[in-house]
Design a protein around this nucleic acid. Sequence first.
DNA 1: GAGTTTGAAACT
DNA 2: CAGTTTCAAACTC
Length: 681
Amino acid sequence: MDSSARLNNKTLSRSIVAPTTTSSTSTAIPISDSAKSQVINIIPTYPFNFCSITALQSSHLSIFQENQHQRVMLRRCLQYEDDGSNPLANNPGFSAPTNSIANPDSCCGPLNLEIPNASWLESNATSGNMDAIGLSLPIVSNLPAQRGMPSFPASRPSGIGLHLNSIISSAPVGCACMRLAGGNYPIVQERNPGFMLSSHPSEGTNSSFGFADPIEISNINDLRHNSQFSLRACSDTAESAQSFKASGDYLLLTPASYHANPSGMGKLQSHVDHIDEFENFNQLSPPRKRKRAISATDGDGCKMCNCMKSKCLKLYCECFSSGNYCAESCACHGCLNKPDYEDTVQDARHQIEIRNPLAFVSKVEDKWLTTSSARHKRGCSCKKSMCLQKYCNCFQSRVGCSEECRCKSCKNTYGWKEDNGSSMERVSQSTNFKGWETASNEELAAVTVGKDMQGKICHPHILTPTTPSFQFSDHGKDAFKSRLSSRRYFPSPDSDLTILSSHIKSLISGDSDGNGTDMLQKTSTEVLHPVCYNEEFDSGGINDRTSFSLSPKYDKYADVYNRIGMPNVQSMPSGFTASPITGNSKSISQAVISPGTDHFPPKGSLWHDSPCTPLTDGVTKIHEGLDSKNDVYTILTDDTSEVLKQADTPLKDVKVSSPKRKRVCPPDNHCREFESNLQKF
DNA sequence: GAGTTTGAAACT
DNA sequence: CAGTTTCAAACTC
């Protein structure tokens, strides 16, 4: 079964609540007060394409309606995405689902889901049918191709282009774009009714914005005449599941054609202008107190800037440099990095590219196919930070320093550069089974950087570039704590380290039940829990592939795999991809729990806070049950074990994913807690 | 939250 | 290309 069929057969178990009252001639989706309470839970999507898809599948949409003031909130996205790499970009109609790759620089790489015939929405929106509408649609991710992955044909135009903003910065863990091809049907739920429901923009305030620059659409026809819209779904995972649901999720429309052809969005532009007036109005007001973005990222890699003078049109601006528009959550002043100023933005980009054609190119490449070998293209020039702080480009990108770097006294944890210029793979060289076995040993202290770095015991986890944000410095700790309380967490492969180590240890020592394969199967299954790297995720999976990334530490087990006939993974130390939704009838399991459901684990749950998507058998089973009960959760298949059991069947989709990973994954107990929470279901 | 440090970007 | 300045993020207090 190909991915298309698979997806179709699985049918998105998203329930879409149609508007209750709308005349067939209505020009907009009315939003009634009662409907306001109807929340469509858009599960945050993850860098993994399949996750995104599954997330959307398991999400259920609702249409927020507003009487009289029929409007659609659009998020203006900076996305020069129509580079031809995606057939959908030019084809509003049906397209076979293909997974491309997530924008490595954006945690919220757009996932555009094509709905071949979106008329269902209109028909249902106008029929008064409140019943949930089963969505069955092929899903196509429209994610930019990953650079440095020659196995995938998708390409981007020169200049890389500005990517979809990482969506609402306040809704970082994930987001998705759903394109209503053919489409006429903006479905928008504004997260912040305070603004959404205001009859006039001036009634709102900046502070009431849930996200940046919503575009107010008062007439659905304004959108209807446009062929494509991206339905964006985001969730603020900083909230608990309960509040998540209570407050609703983002569900934003972005006219896909807007960026490619702004001129074609005349009507929309009028609304943009309207917003501009609003913004101007606000600017005339006493300058809002400069608010520093709580985090350099919104928590999931969606950069937020605080530019004061650059107008966000210089590479100083992280939003700009990463190809994104600034978000409302940014604390920048005089920002021109907005769709409103697209020409200006383009000019600025052009000027910069003249100076440096690679200015907007991904700063990290993984040409060496190993996580630890990924390098920052431009390297760094650190003099004092020893490449151990985020001042360092390389460190910040979680890659090792290389010969390209001009740094001094490099101590980059991800691979340092000797003073003679040669680079070392610290990750691989400084780790060993012994160390890994003690990875879970709490005696090992987390590393702190800077002055305290030297002489401290390195927690083995530090050796993996996957979890730097809490591995280093107090900042990291804070970030970790913050994330524990505000993000969803799933156990990372790190969590399985002990188990894995144990398994392999026994395997190697022969202290198994004699069935090493079984042991390894079990191990593999556990290991195969995908690491969800939200930010800067470099999906190794493109076109019908999904990434399952392994921490570099698992490189060490490659030989073990080989010993028992597992696919050769030696060449994919940083991870590999399996094919969950394609080709093979067997695929990696997927299970996604919608955070917007009552079944979501209670607030505070680490699992809940995890941005990762666990793919455990148990999870899947649970979800199967949930799915049948509530049509909320959707599962593709749970074939992980089976895939692994087929030791004689090479994983055709072995891929390498880059190391660009930021997501922090919790320790072992998080895994247990996660499963414990699941048991509550 | 203010001030300092840092290194990239921008400029000369 | 090198040196300096500007800038904003990272970091410290």
